[in-house]
């Protein structure tokens, strides 16, 4: 089972080990943020099986970090690995769009 860490920079071993690493910036328990986390989990489980890791960053707890990483609105998800980094904002309800950005457009149409 892939790990979802809410404290960033922990579980570094696992993060390095995983093929797909995402960082999700949320605003506490805000509905869009929670929805985004659910959507991302489902998507990753569907497409990456166990080979993924999600870091959750709460901007309410560490706003300066979010800002220095260029995150303004919540929720924002950043694909850290593999390169190039991909940045998606919103609650990820628009699954077609998310899959297309992540390179799953063909599979989605299958």
């Amino acid at each position: 089972m892939p790990a979802i860490s809410s404290v960033p920079d922990s579980n570094k071993q696992e993060a390095r080990a995983a093929g797909f690493v995402f960082r999700l910036y949320v605003a506490g328990e805000a509905p869009n943020s929670q929805l985004a986390l659910r959507n991302l989990k489902v998507l990753c489980q569907d497409h990456y099986r166990d080979d993924f890791h999600i870091d959750v960053v709460d901007v309410l707890l560490s706003p300066e970090r979010a800002w220095t990483e260029g995150v303004i609105v919540t929720p924002t998800v950043v694909r850290v690995t593999p390169e190039p980094g991909i940045r998606i904002i919103g609650n990820l309800s628009n699954t077609d769009q998310v899959l297309s950005v992540l390179g799953f457009a063909m599979q989605a149409n299958d």
């Binding site: 910036y25 949320v26 605003a27 506490g28 805000a30 869009n32 943020s33 929805l35 985004a36 959507n39 901007v59 309410l60 706003p63 979010a66 800002w67 260029g70 303004i72 609105v73 919540t74 929720p75 924002t76 991909i86 940045r87 998606i88 904002i89 919103g90 609650n91 990820l92 309800s93 628009n94 699954t95 769009q97 998310v98 950005v101």
Partner: peptide, 25 residues
């Protein structure tokens, strides 16, 4: 000063809000 310029490569997929930004501000 807060640099809040959206990155050109950003993709929007679903609703988002300013709650996080405003709370941080």
């Amino acid at each position: 000063f807060l640099d809040a310029k959206p990155r050109p490569d950003v993709v929007c997929a679903g609703h988002f809000d300013l709650a996080g930004l405003l709370a941080a501000l």
